[in-house]
Design a protein around this nucleic acid. Structure first.
Lengths: 136, 136
DNA sequence: CCTATAGTTGGATCGTTGTCAAACAATGAG
DNA sequence: CTCATTGTTTGACAACGATCCAACTATAGG
């Protein structure tokens, strides 16, 4: 069993963690790892609609940011979240992100209900008070 | 008083928030806003070593990601964090990030002590178990 | 009206990133 | 050894992003 190189806990940078998780594909991988504990590369990116080489780049991005560790067993590589390390370095951060990621994207259920009964495109409106036509 | 356009609370995307805060300059601006509550643009980016137009682009990035609101009063524009909105959308996320941002970057105090007494460059070592020369 | 202040916009540049495809490497199975 | 499986590397390319500079807009104050 081998571990691939990854940054020491103290070297994990907040901006790099945020950046790593700011990509939808990588965030999805992280979510799956959080649920499964450990996944091999093929499984982790399955049905994500990206080429395997693209996925491989994402694995590296996650690893170099300090978000995951990769260990090789036989011909498979397994990734897992560095939950403990991240919690030492940035207490509560990973949990907050994962919890946020499991929220409904876009409209809430109540907003959906309101939108269903009301006029269309009400949903796409922006929040602007006093002079909705304000220019930047 | 005018508010500049910004996304509705339900439209704030996690990946965009993470992306917005994954830039050191923008993260620093967010930290200052968290401390000061409200800052005008000049003050927010003061001593950050970026051109005022660069700063302006960052303001827009933060605003479009849903992290800040900007209101104009007279000839000044004031930014503030959308704490309440973000907490509705992603409970605990912003606090976790801001708390993480206030942690010491790089080595801990104890690691600094150890590094000061030991051989140099020990500090830059990576965590690799079993085969430190493992290739990716 | 003129000027100074505050901030935005647009162009140019330059590095980074996400993507795919094809070639490669390493491993386990037959 | 040969082959299929797993994943990485490399190259190419388009898109994006951070930055600076210059020009612009808008507002307040003489």
């Amino acid at each position: 069993m081998r571990l691939l190189p990854h940054p020491a806990t103290e070297d994990i940078e907040l901006t790099e963690v945020l950046r790593a998780l700011s990509d939808p594909v990588r965030l999805q991988i992280a979510i799956r790892l959080a649920l499964a504990g450990e996944l091999n590369c093929t499984t982790a990116a399955d049905d994500l609609g990206v080429h395997k080489s693209t996925a491989s780049h994402h694995y590296r991005a996650l690893r170099e940011a300090g978000v995951v560790v990769t260990k090789q067993e036989g011909r498979l590589k397994y990734m897992s979240l560095r939950r403990a390390d991240l919690d030492v370095r940035f207490p509560g951060l990973l949990d907050a992100i994962l919890r946020s990621a499991n929220r409904p994207s876009g409209r809430t259920a109540s907003a959906h209900r309101a939108a269903a009964g009301g006029p269309e495109e009400q949903v796409a409106r922006e929040q602007v008070t006093e002079r909705a036509d304000a220019r930047a």
